[in-house]
Amino acid sequence: MIPSTLEYTKASSIDEAVAAVAAGAVPLSGGQSLMPMMRLRLAAPHAIVDLSGIPELVGICEDEDEIAVGAMTIHREIAASELIRAHAGLVADAAGGIGSPQVRNRGTIGGSLGHADPHSDMPATLIAAGASVIAKGPNGERRILAEDLITTYLTTTLEPGEIITQVRIPKSDDHSAYAKFHRRAIDWTVVGVGVCIGDNGVRAAATGVADKPVRLSAFEAVLNGGGSLDDAIAKVAEGIEPHAGLDGSVEYKKHLLGVLARKAHGEASSR
């Protein structure tokens, strides 16, 4: 279908984009979620502001403690980044497995977070990696823990007028990996688990098992308390109630959670 009538502007600075969003425009990044929704008329924004003309939003750089990833950086660049591979391998794993090359040539890290799909791969890995998001709005800039960004289906804690400008991933020596299950090549993830293992213990998060990405707290607690992997897997679904759907029953998703947590943990340990 053809999207409904809309106004289009292309922002050339972050401030211009913020002003447009504050005035009611919807940000357009890679369009790999927004355009299909507009074609199906699930979304019908009256105005969109294209973020692709803002140079500060693109690219990956580092300071002493963190890797700064511009919100408009595409999945392909993230998957290929040596820097991200070295400090947060699970994020590169996830980016490289999203959709298809065509989707990875367009889809962005900022759009993945802003879209807040409960089956999205990026947010769960960023939560496991302890990343934060920089948001800019009419009242200035603030930092939000990735874990606090997504509240439920397609919903974030971004204030009206705020856009994500950057994702900041802590530099760490953690060994990490992301494991997911999807039915056919291009399908979205049914369940995915990201695990980071380091000096400060184990952190893990999952996608596809709730209305938002979740930390696997019980799994972490067993391992961080010196328990065995088997014991941790036995508790992995504690406190988590997946929704049954066309992609699987509650029991099936809990089963996948255990299988994938074991797989991601094993891959992370062997890196």
Binding site: Y8, Q32, P36, R39, Q102, V103, R106, I186
Partner: peptide, 26 residues
Amino acid sequence: DTSTCGCCTVHVDGDAVLSCSTLAIQ
């Protein structure tokens, strides 16, 4: 209608992308 089939693949500035999920104005 869901950006999944790839029939519409073209190159924009050298990258393979889905022309059904890109606006002409972009």
